[in-house]
Nucleic acid binder design. Structure first.
Lengths: 215, 215
DNA sequence: CATCATAGTGCTCAATTGTTCACTATCAAT
DNA sequence: ATTGATAGTGAACAATTGAGCACTATGATG
């Protein structure tokens, strides 16, 4: 079993994976540093050393961009299928969530959908949620749409996120102020929701995509 | 169409692919030269330049190992893949369409996307079109979104369709009146378009879905 | 409080790597 | 016979990139 990563290390590992998928080769130390405002290559190098020690990557000594990513086992099991160089990706569709039940509980699953693996990976634990209500129409998210949710990413201010609020699942734009969390609907008929009781609130994940089928 | 490679160029391209698959990153000029007993990096570089000119790779200037391998998919046959009992579906993404060119011309294709075969089948000749402009925001279709288009289905009144109008591709709601075709934008800032000259107008297909990726 | 792991700065240095030049050689096609 | 595309040498140079050191800071833990 692999050792657990710190928050920072996990961010950096994900950046390396994304970069490599987009460019076909891994980033340099300075490119990683640039992304995270780490001005010293040494700071970055130590993160890589930590990732290597914990078994997530292998670093080629003195080689530029010499980062080998070690695939997690769970990348290959379950519903991710490898065909040649491509990964096909089947994620569950969550329909109406029964109050109090874990969102991915069997009773909440209404089916599955294949999603391009360029965008979300099964390894991220992504799932699709069918949207109820019209509170996000100004963001182009309508009743019945599927939003693709990545629980690995809890979102930052301005992101569209899925949250659990008083046993209900809701899609809103996240707005973080100093000491205050506000959920913004994207519909003038609804008011922003200010989080008063942090115990009855949690962020499930960031919305990474929207899928709609007509007729 | 891609130009033919020489024997040597083909060997080198294959080596780069193999190297990348084994190591997770592309080789350096000297590593390529080492494999083929080419002592000068310049000799190797010129092979890469040739590969780039012929459209097989893209070289990142001054970047170590900066070799991007361009995938040459044949979009029009053999891209439905069977895995077990499931069919996976890869359809081309059409970006900006050059005026006067057929919409699926190679120069218009910017990539491909895997779509759940439950919704659109390759057999329908479906493709994805990247949306330009904001004329459909009230229908939840934004600039940059991908609309999934089925050319088998020319749509009926009330459907969102993709049409070719005066050498331009446009997404609108179709409205058929007796003896008149009107294209309705879904944005109050735009006016409906009444088709006067049927020669400069044709329906490409019906929009069967919308896909949007955030960040 | 002391200790340890994590995280970062600013800097130097060495190694790696890409770029370019002038020159040679082969082969196919004009 | 001359031209053009391909293929390669050897060297010098510039740019990128990784490695390492001394030092600072924070939070968790015992």
């Amino acid at each position: 079993m692999k050792e657990k990563l710190t928050e920072r290390q996990n961010e950096i590992l994900n950046f390396i994976k994304d970069y490599r998928r987009e460019n076909g080769f891994p980033p340099t130390l300075r490119e990683i540093g640039g992304r995270f405002q780490i001005s010293s290559t040494f700071g970055v190098k130590r993160h890589l050393n930590a990732l290597e020690k914990k078994g997530y990557v292998v670093i080629e000594r003195n080689a530029s961009r010499g980062i080998r990513i070690i695939q997690h086992d769970d990348y290959f099991d379950g519903d991710t299928t490898r065909v040649g160089d491509e990964f096909f990706n089947k994620i569950p569709i969550v329909g109406r969530v029964a109050a109090g039940s874990p969102i991915l509980a069997m009773e909440n699953i209404e089916g599955s959908i294949i999603i391009d693996p360029t965008f979300v990976k099964k390894a991220e634990g992504a799932f699709a949620l069918r949207v109820r209500g019209d509170s996000m129409i100004n963001a182009g998210i309508f009743e019945g749409d599927l939003v693709i949710v990545s629980p690995d990413n809890k979102g930052k201010s301005g992101d569209v996120i899925v949250a659990m609020l008083d046993d209900e699942v809701t899609v809103k734009t996240l707005n973080v102020k100093k000491n205050k969390i506000v959920l913004l609907p994207e519909n003038d008929n609804y008011d922003p929701i200010t989080i008063e009781d942090k115990n009855s609130f949690s962020i499930i994940g960031k919305v990474k995509g929207v899928v709609r089928w007509l007729n």
